Amino acid sequence: MTNYFIVPGLGNSGEQHWQSNFERSGENFKRIEQKEWDAPVCSDWIATIDETLKDYDLSTVVLVGHSLACATIAQWAIDNNRQIRGALLVAPSDLEATGYDFPAVGFSVPKTKIPFKTIVVASTNDPWVTIDRAKHFAEIWGSEFINIGDAGHINVDAGYTEWPEGMEILKRL
């Protein structure tokens, strides 16, 4: 059985967010709960992922990240040399963009290939990452890249509550 772990970004994912709906879709979906959602420290988020997964057979694990969690998952994999089944990385935030000024400490966009299968899903009108930067992240991470068109930040504000297409993409992992 595959174990899916929801990894929300900055601020967590609310009740209507597609990640929350994925989480409710089966008992093998669990959320990784960070201690600090609004002013996170990268090393804390990475440690929480590692601690959450320590008792699982990593070959059964798929991470489902959104926004800031995409870079966190990449950094976790690289720092800890972890091999999991795969990760779905949706709407990765461009932490190097001039407009990204959230109180997040120690986060960066890893510039190394992720050592397992990943899919990056991005939008042409995401306010937190241009489509070209998202494609660049996918290239350096060794990820499959999917452009879903005008979908904003692929969150509730952009209308992504139920996201059956996302669930279909997830099944590819």
Score class of each variant (00 low, 15 high):
2 T>P: 01
3 N>E: 12
3 N>G: 02
4 Y>W: 02
4 Y>F: 15
5 F>L: 13
8 P>V: 00
10 L>I: 12
10 L>N: 09
11 G>S: 07
13 S>K: 04
13 S>M: 03
16 Q>W: 01
19 Q>T: 12
20 S>P: 04
20 S>F: 08
21 N>D: 11
22 F>G: 11
23 E>G: 02
25 S>E: 10
27 E>Q: 07
29 F>L: 13
29 F>P: 03
32 I>F: 02
32 I>W: 04
34 Q>T: 01
35 K>T: 14
37 W>S: 07
37 W>H: 05
39 A>Y: 05
39 A>M: 11
40 P>A: 15
41 V>L: 11
43 S>Q: 11
44 D>A: 09
46 I>H: 01
47 A>C: 01
48 T>S: 13
48 T>I: 14
51 E>F: 07
51 E>M: 08
52 T>Q: 15
53 L>M: 07
53 L>H: 01
54 K>C: 11
54 K>W: 02
55 D>C: 09
55 D>G: 07
57 D>Q: 10
57 D>A: 14
60 T>L: 14
60 T>D: 15
61 V>M: 09
63 L>P: 01
63 L>C: 08
63 L>D: 03
64 V>M: 08
64 V>G: 10
65 G>E: 00
67 S>V: 04
69 A>H: 06
72 T>S: 11
73 I>E: 02
74 A>H: 04
74 A>Y: 02
77 A>F: 09
78 I>Y: 05
78 I>R: 09
80 N>I: 02
81 N>M: 03
81 N>Y: 06
81 N>T: 14
82 R>S: 15
83 Q>W: 06
84 I>S: 07
85 R>E: 09
85 R>Y: 06
87 A>D: 00
87 A>R: 01
87 A>V: 03
88 L>W: 10
90 V>E: 06
91 A>H: 01
92 P>W: 03
93 S>N: 00
93 S>W: 00
94 D>M: 02
94 D>A: 10
98 T>M: 06
102 F>Q: 14
105 V>L: 13
105 V>H: 13
106 G>Y: 01
106 G>T: 12
109 V>M: 12
116 F>Y: 10
117 K>Y: 10
117 K>C: 11
117 K>W: 01
118 T>E: 00
119 I>A: 04
121 V>I: 09
122 A>K: 02
122 A>H: 03
122 A>T: 02
123 S>F: 05
124 T>Q: 14
125 N>Y: 11
125 N>E: 04
126 D>R: 00
127 P>Q: 15
131 I>Y: 03
132 D>G: 10
133 R>G: 04
133 R>W: 03
134 A>R: 04
135 K>G: 08
135 K>S: 14
136 H>K: 08
136 H>Q: 06
137 F>Q: 03
138 A>N: 05
139 E>Q: 15
140 I>C: 03
140 I>Q: 12
141 W>Y: 08
141 W>G: 05
142 G>E: 09
145 F>V: 13
146 I>A: 07
146 I>C: 05
148 I>K: 03
151 A>G: 12
153 H>C: 11
153 H>Q: 08
157 D>K: 12
159 G>C: 13
160 Y>A: 00
161 T>F: 05
161 T>L: 12
162 E>I: 09
165 E>A: 14
167 M>V: 13
168 E>A: 15
169 I>N: 05
170 L>Y: 08
171 K>E: 14
172 R>V: 07
172 R>A: 14
173 L>V: 09
173 L>G: 05
